[in-house]
């Protein structure tokens, strides 16, 4: 039976139904492909550095460590407290250098500067360097995500 004022013909309805079904079928094929192309990644829960590394902290050069796939740096702040950073530029992801003589972090990619506390002070970086928490436990230094 055809309604007198229907704006939606049976053919249009069936076309939408069929098209929608095919789109859903397509999505079901694409979803696993999309899922497959991004591998899982988990940040480390903690990184343990031996206490012997503390000796190297005295000359302001700092100690490098690996925070998952990213480089990290442990050093002492002005007040002598331990500071840990993910030394990856917040601008475009280049690895930054700690320049102990200038007391600054420097990113060579686009001339970005951060002060000794990792705060962006010049150039294009939009945010401070990411901080991690560093604490001494049983003689070791434990680096964890900042709470």
């Amino acid at each position: 039976m055809k309604l007198k004022y229907s704006l939606f013909s049976r053919r249009a309805f069936l076309n939408w139904l069929l098209g929608g079904g095919l789109a859903a079928l397509g999505a079901a094929f694409i979803a696993p492909i999309a899922k497959f192309v991004i591998p899982p990644y988990k940040e480390p829960d903690e990184v343990k550095l031996p206490a012997s590394d503390l000796v190297d902290l005295t000359d302001n050069r700092g100690v490098s460590f690996a925070w998952g796939n990213k480089p990290g740096l442990l050093k002492r702040g002005q007040d002598g407290a331990l500071q840990a950073f993910v030394t990856v530029c917040t601008h475009l992801d280049c690895n930054v250098t700690w320049l102990p003589d200038d007391n600054k972090f420097y990113c060579a990619c686009h001339q970005g500067w951060y002060n000794a506390d990792g705060v962006n002070i010049a150039g294009p970086p939009p945010r401070p360097l990411r901080r991690l928490s560093a604490a001494r436990e049983n003689g070791d230094i434990l680096i964890r995500k900042e709470a």
């Binding site: 490098s64 690996a66 796939n69 990213k70 480089p71 030394t87 530029c89 280049c94 690895n95 930054v96 250098t97 990113c107 060579a108 990619c109």
Partner: peptide
């Protein structure tokens, strides 16, 4: 080296 600082003049 993925842990090394970016070189100058990239």
């Amino acid at each position: 080296d993925i842990m090394a600082p970016a070189p100058a003049g990239i």
